[in-house]
Amino acid sequence: MNELHKLVEEALPELDMMIGWAESSDPLRTTPVFINDVESISRLIWSPFCAQNLTGYLVKPPAPQPADKDKKIGICVKGCDSRSLVALIQEKFVARERLHIFGIACRGTVDWRRIMLQVPRSNVKSARVEDNFLLLEDTDGTHKLKLEDVLARKCLRCRYPNPVICDTMIGEPAVLRISPEDAYRDVEAVDQKSLEERLAFWQSDLDRCMRCYACRNACPLCVCQDQCIAETREPRWLTQRTGIREKFLFHMIHAMHLAGRCTECGECERVCPMEIPVTLIKEKLNKIISDKLGYTAGLDPNAVPPMLTFDPGETGV
């Protein structure tokens, strides 16, 4: 933490604003924070509870505009978040030179809903991670949970725990939890099911969708925002009916617009109040893109995502 504060303080004179994480009223979760003065630097934290991907704030309205054009915006990114940043730079939504990227080596973020499954009815007073355990203090005393039982699904399949792009690196590089060829095992597990089972799986899960659009709004690459065709009445693609058809169509629109762009940061799945594994749909598309076109999103700022270009010499498809 001191390292983070020190490095941000050093960089602050050249920054117009710093986007990072701060404590929230819940010890299991953090909240994004936007600071521009030295006094507030102490609010910045880094911990396995810093689950939010902050890069969306760079492009979602009202996107921060530096008051001083010579100054940069500072932003904290984990490995997964840094890939979103690469994608945004590729698509020219943010300019690399306007950013000061504080990259954080990440050993995984926790999913508070998985914690609640292990300690239901817990009124958590404090929480911290030590080695491979999560230690919780609540009214019943201390609980010691295995980290792998409470990490977010995306962290259990993470291939890029270290930032792929940054100006200042914080922490020792993290090592992979899995071998990279296992990264799509969740998709493969669904693919193993019969067609009927798969249909039943998605029907049951997507039927819970309320169309609150949190998955879309939290996605740093869902850049259409207020113009999203899910809500426009002209043309009218979706009705206000609550049937599975509308929900399915929305999620397909969302996923197709992200094919080959999605960096699997998992925000859509993390924010879903109905616990629908929506990132899985994007993982499936990414696996296809990877198998057929050999492309992985969010690694090279100079690459062009395959769905954003046309190459007559394409051989994969």
């Binding site: 994004p32 969306g56 979602k60 609150c212 659009y213 949190a214 709004n217 939290a218 924010v271």
Partner: peptide, 12 residues
């Protein structure tokens, strides 16, 4: 400042 303009808070 942090709000994502999603509908969770209103729907739940």
């Amino acid at each position: 400042a942090q709000c994502l303009s999603c509908g969770i808070c209103t729907f739940v």
